[in-house]
């Protein structure tokens, strides 16, 4: 009878250990912040307007966009550097019609909400590690103001920045 009691006690102890370990593993780690860059880009086949203050897009990113999309020219309309805290949300206005809300869902996942004309349009989640390894996260859509053109929001994370 005594060996049955010790067996039961041992099993209960092990079960408790594993539940504790699983809860510790399952609980989201406290993230430590992330440096990001968000760029609003206009994709078009037209030339840059003469009086426009748009900047030329980084050639590497431009090359990537050209490889995937049909447009010849890509202009940076706006760019914002974002210091995302480990806890908390950051709102970034890219244009009067485009707003982003960013947060670290956990230390490995960036969550981005896109607001178009004040309406929450889309949420997506991206691997932080992928971003830090040079991956681009691109939100895009048709330009409502000019038929045939497109808008892009490109989110990147500099490789040196670590969460």
């Amino acid at each position: 009878m005594s060996h049955i009691r010790s067996l039961g006690a041992g099993l209960v102890f092990l079960a408790g250990l594993w539940v504790a370990a699983a809860c510790a593993g399952a609980a989201p780690a406290r993230a430590a912040g992330l440096e990001l860059k968000a760029q609003l880009v206009w994709g078009t086949d037209d030339q840059k307007p003469k009086d426009a203050t748009f900047k030329e897009l980084d050639p590497k990113i431009k090359k990537k966009l050209r490889s995937v999309f049909k447009w010849k020219n890509y202009f940076e309309i706006n760019a914002r550097k974002i210091a995302l805290p480990g806890n908390g949300t950051k709102k970034v206005r890219m244009s009067p019609k485009c707003e982003l809300e960013l947060r670290l869902a956990d230390e490995a996942t960036l969550e981005v909400k896109l607001f178009g004309e004040g309406r929450w349009a889309k949420t997506f989640r991206q691997s932080v590690k992928a971003l830090q390894q040079g991956q681009l996260a691109v939100l895009a859509g048709d330009d409502k103001d000019k038929y045939g053109d497109a808008w892009f929001v490109i989110i990147t994370a500099p490789a040196s920045a670590k969460p």
Partner: peptide, 18 residues
């Protein structure tokens, strides 16, 4: 929306259709 991953260009694209 539809999501497109380009491994060669290292890009994830989420195309939003309104």
């Amino acid at each position: 929306s539809f999501t497109f991953d380009s491994e060669s260009e290292g890009m994830t694209v989420i195309w939003v259709n309104t």
